[in-house]
C-alpha cells in the first residue's frame, strides 16, 4: 500500500496536465490514465482511450467534456477528465 502511494508521488504524472485543462479542438496524446478504478481503466481501454492514443476535446458542455476518441464521440464528466493525463 505505502509503496503504491510512494510511486504515485514519484512518478512522472505530476508533470502532465489533466484533460480538464485541455483546449478545445487540439489533438492531445494521452500520457496516462491516473485512477485506481481498474474497471474504469479497462473500460476506457476498450473504447481506445489509453496511453499513447490521441484524443480531442470537441466542446465543454454543462460541466461535461465532449471528447473524440478513435472515431466516436463521448461525454465524460469533469471527475473523469481529471484522471486523463495529457
Amino acid at each position: 500500500m505505502s509503496n503504491a502511494y510512494a510511486n504515485l508521488f514519484e512518478n512522472e504524472n505530476t508533470f502532465f496536465k489533466t484533460l480538464s485543462e485541455a483546449d478545445v479542438n487540439v489533438e492531445y496524446v494521452i500520457q496516462d490514465i491516473d485512477t485506481e478504478d481498474d474497471e474504469m481503466k479497462s473500460f476506457l481501454f476498450s473504447l481506445g482511450c489509453f496511453k499513447g492514443e490521441t484524443l480531442t476535446v470537441i466542446s465543454i458542455l454543462a460541466e461535461n467534456f465532449v471528447i473524440s476518441i478513435k472515431d466516436g464521440r463521448y461525454s465524460i464528466d469533469s471527475d473523469l477528465a481529471e484522471v486523463i493525463l495529457i
Binding site: L55, T56, I58, S59, L61, A62, E63, V66, K70, R73
Partner: peptide, 18 residues
C-alpha cells in the same frame, strides 16, 4: 476527419448547453 467539428457538434452545443 472524425475529430473535426461537425454540424452535429453545433447542435449539441445548443441542446446540451449549460
Amino acid at each position: 476527419k472524425s475529430n473535426q467539428q461537425t454540424r452535429q457538434d453545433a447542435v449539441d452545443r445548443v441542446v446540451a448547453n449549460k
